[in-house]
Amino acid sequence: MKLTTSGEPANPALPASGFVFDAKRAALVITDPQIDFLSAEGASWAAFGPSVIENDTVAHIGELLRAAKSADITVAVSPHYFYPTDEQWTFGDPLEQFMSSVGMFARQGAYTLDGFTGSGADFLPAYHCHIHDGRTVITSPHKIVGPESNDLVLQLRKRGVSQVILAGMAANLCVEGHLRELIEQGFEVAVVKDATAGPRLPEGDGYLAALVNFRFLASAVWTTAQAIKHLQGEQK
């Protein structure tokens, strides 16, 4: 049987999860909506840019933020930052080595914003109005790919959230890492497949790899248009 990885399977073998969206207990979580991932000026654009462009990721994340604010649900951003003291780490996986080599998400320190504005670690300027509105939860940084090392789960639990609409960067890395941990923590998770993107390297297409795992693990895999319809109460 030939598998199609980019489109949805014509005859899926896996049963439906039975997921029913409930805005009263839902949150939108965006991972790493930062310049280093989403801008041609970012440190990783050579690897991620083609997928970002193909998926129209930047616009789709913006659409999700607007729709979530209009629906008045919790919005949380899980960012990725590295401080000078992180350079003392004595080992790292290939992803960590890559991020270190190109200076991704670098900040001058945990208690200073010197040099932060407009740097690769900053949020994409198009999202500032949504993220810096005094309502969005900006969690402590995650350090590898998952939220195990930050306070995302605590922030969601404290708000009575049990369902997550998940998007952001990057598909097979931080998005999938957050998906897996949120599932382990008892959340239902709907991934928005065109509001993310992945690296294209000789090792493989990270976006296509992520789509396979999204279908196996997520409660739902939506397009941005489908997610917005749910947020607007137009789709059951």
Rank of each mutant, 00 (worst) to 15 (best):
L124Y: 14
F105C: 14
A40W: 09
I61F: 05
V221P: 08
A23P: 02
T57S: 10
D86Q: 08
L38A: 06
W89D: 10
R66G: 03
G118D: 09
M169N: 07
G198A: 08
P9W: 11
E54S: 11
Q235K: 13
V191H: 05
K24I: 00
Y111W: 12
I30W: 04
P12Y: 09
L124E: 14
V191M: 02
A47M: 14
L152V: 05
A195M: 10
T196R: 01
A171Y: 03
A68I: 08
A190V: 08
T117N: 07
G118N: 10
L3P: 01
E176Y: 13
F98W: 15
I53A: 09
N11V: 09
R180L: 05
T5K: 12
R200C: 05
M99T: 08
T90S: 11
S70K: 15
H60M: 02
W222M: 06
A121K: 03
D72M: 03
L231D: 12
E234L: 15
T117P: 00
V20F: 00
M169Y: 06
T139C: 13
I35L: 09
I30F: 04
L156C: 01
P125K: 07
V212L: 10
N11C: 05
H60C: 03
A171K: 02
G49T: 09
D151S: 09
E63P: 00
K24S: 14
Q88C: 00
D72S: 11
A170P: 00
